[in-house]
Design a protein around this nucleic acid. Structure first.
Lengths: 230, 230
DNA sequence: TTGGTTTAATGTTAATTAAGGTTAAAAAGA
DNA sequence: TCTTTTTAACCTTAATTAACATTAAACCAA
């Protein structure tokens, strides 16, 4: 049987060396990367069985790398290493869909348990990603039930209304959606005040989505909107 | 696994050298061209996996090169590098059709993400052009759902009514279209006021289309219009 | 028939109105 | 207290209406 291939991204070289050697002594094949910017080509070349990513990296955080990896490969398990200072919320947002996380400091046993766990789950054919829950919207990925919108540079937790509106827009992308329909779906009626409310949320989403210039919420005055995605 | 081959067209030699070496250190094979006129032979010889083109080049702009490359190869991903001074809309207008673009200055991470992204999209067999959405109208190209009309010199965002009218005219080009039919399609009825409204929009479109002398919206009094495109 | 005149249709431009955008502050939840 | 949602105020833009100009078909007289 081939060795399990681990892609390990860690900027603390001292810690990294220990972990790498420790895993190798347990018959894993480990490729370590200390620079977040170089991960994708290495990933493509190695095609690892599992990724272990430190969240705090000099140029690029682990979440961003993760969502890039996810675009290349929607199923490979990803394990985050987080310092205890990170907010729980965002980490949790990412700790689904084949992702797991371990708080630093951790023991080798713990890491190995998580790795084996991830591999086992994947082997059993348990869907690692609840794929339909994660929408690719342009350069963003949007976890609907977690209400997390992740771009290259920032990860944002959306409120309920923001998230629902984005979902509606996405489901009807490239088509004209009636203002009234959105209002009825989001507020249950289309009174004047809710109508102005919708304007506010449209503005918010536009600003959240501006990392990708190709994403556009076009206003069709007197009618509604059209969300153009590609 | 073979290295990913990148054709990189860039006239700023200093920047180019940095980018080239940076990509090479990340296991890409890079061929750099500084002169736009020589790109096609190089393309043929290299048969790259992805092209990265600076838009502002001395003799020939990146868009022109891109369309030449497209003739040789309709699917290879093309990424444009554009200066930040170019207006958003210009970029938007041209960045349609499966290509991506990056604003200068950019980070290496960003470039790599885009490259990997482009390769992945191609692998998945995702269609690179949403061709049916882009109409060629004389010297203009018209992106219907984005409501963007791009000529050589200016790119204009059309309003919904302008855009719909242009679409109707184009779909019935070189034929006589009844005024009434347009009115019914655009406003749902043909009352007097809407009728005057149509006049206004016809005037607007005529002025938008005057970059190309061969395009003409001919009035047929008492009947309707004929949009002559050839 | 020809050239002028009338008249309705359409062209053009500007003013008005209404829809929506943006931002901030207030209110409501949690 | 902190976040989300709603309300409010003011700003921008598209769509409509209005006013006046031009065109071309229709009519008419010499």
């Amino acid at each position: 049987m081939n060795k399990t291939k681990v892609l390990y991204v860690e900027d603390e070289l001292f810690l990294g060396k220990i972990v790498k050697e420790s895993l190798e002594s347990r018959h894993y094949e480990v490729v370590m990367e200390s620079d977040g910017t170089n991960v994708l080509p290495v990933f493509r070349q190695l095609n690892p069985d599992v990724c272990v990513l430190d969240v705090m990296l000099p140029h690029k955080d682990g979440f961003t790398i993760a969502s890039e990896i996810r675009e290349l490969n929607p199923t490979v398990p990803i394990i985050f290493l987080t310092a205890k200072t990170q907010t729980d919320d965002l980490v949790k947002g990412f700790s689904i869909g084949g992702n797991d996380y371990i708080r630093k400091p951790f023991s080798m046993e713990e890491l190995i348990v998580r790795i084996e766990n991830a591999l086992r789950i994947r082997q059993q054919g348990v869907p690692v990603t609840n794929a339909k829950d994660i929408l690719q919207i342009g350069k963003y990925s949007f976890h609907v039930t977690r209400q997390v919108l992740s771009g290259y540079h920032e990860v944002r937790k959306l409120s309920f209304r923001e998230s629902e509106l984005l979902k509606i827009l996405y489901e009807n992308r490239d088509r004209i959606i009636d203002r009234k329909d959105i209002l009825n779906l989001l507020w249950g009626n289309d009174s004047f005040f809710n109508s102005r409310n919708l304007d506010v949320y449209i503005t918010k989403l536009r600003s959240y989505l501006k990392e990708d210039d190709l994403l556009e919420i076009i206003t069709i005055k007197g009618v509604g909107y059209r969300f153009v995605t590609g």
